[in-house]
Design a protein around this nucleic acid. Structure first.
Lengths: 164, 164
DNA sequence: GGCTATTTGGTTGCGCGCAATTTAATTGCG
DNA sequence: CGCAATTAAATTGCGCGCAACCAAATAGCC
């Protein structure tokens, strides 16, 4: 706390570094809030599909790539088994995927969309349009924003890996 | 990836709507991933402050505004008591904040940074710079990205509220 | 073959994030 | 005043995200 002349109960710090604090808050908090806001919209839109947002992401990957081992799924989604194992178990209970150990490599578990899981794709067709509508953005804006976010993620992952 | 001639075990559906699916995946997944990547960097940077990322956000608000009731805190952070109550209890256990019911309105709980909590701000001073460095972005880029994200959040919140 | 090291998933523990419910205090209206 | 409606927090329940740890299978090396 550096010398202030006036403020409220717990006086805010003044000074040059505060711009950094606010800037920081804007980017990290903005991202945090936007991510949760997206989650909220997906929650509404996916409700009658019986999927949560992360479950929807898993199904998207399976619809696109077909049967995959848990490892590959995790690479696509940037998630590990600690998150995927229980999630996949719930999808299995819901009858949307099957899980069976690979014959070639008994360590690996193949995740396969069931008939029902594959059929669900038809009902999910309209989801993206509804989400895009909710954003009020144009396709081009979305694309450029996505590109920026991808740069960000890459840079942040590298930074976290190198220990700062 | 539209219309491929050769697909794997569970063949992906071809057709026009697939562009939408991919576009959607880019924006929602990109945001999701970026948010988690940020979380990862903050986890590293905040480690020796003994704070998680949401706890850091709470302290940022308290440092800026001083003592606040839980309700106001939630408005700043877009969080409700279901999230804040246990989080604040942990901050209290850590000795960083105190919680006491307001005398004016016994329903309200005032959250106040302790001496220790206020002192922590000094050690947190360098955090924003390190985070910004991790992004590899310029201040202006960050600002414009933040502005976009804020638009997004506003639009998404409105959409979710109006039921789609 | 026998040994260690690596890879793959699963499990546990903890902290969010949020909907739904509960409790207590306050407000508002007749 | 008395009583219903509203408001502020807390609690409960569930799903994700991740670190840490464990077990089984495989690969590699002597």
């Amino acid at each position: 706390m550096t010398a202030t002349p006036n403020p409220p109960a717990t006086p805010p710090l003044p000074g040059a570094a505060d711009d950094w604090l606010r800037l920081d808050q804007q980017i990290c908090f903005g991202l945090h809030a936007a991510s949760r806001a997206f989650n909220g919209v997906y929650r509404v839109v996916l409700k009658d599909l019986g999927l949560t947002y992360p479950q929807y992401l898993v199904m998207l990957v399976l619809w696109e790539h077909g049967t995959l081992p848990v490892k590959k799924l995790g690479e696509h989604l940037r998630l590990d088994s600690g998150t995927l194992s229980p999630l996949l178990k719930r999808l299995e209970t819901a009858g949307l995927v099957s899980r069976e150990r690979s014959a070639r490599d008994e360590r690996s578990v193949e995740v396969r969309p069931t008939e029902e899981g594959t059929a669900l794709r038809e009902r999910a067709r309209e989801v993206p349009r509804r989400i895009l509508a909710a954003t009020g953005f144009e396709g081009d804006e979305v694309r450029s924003l996505s590109a920026r976010l991808h740069e960000l993620t890459t840079a942040l992952d590298r930074a976290a890996a190198s220990g700062a």
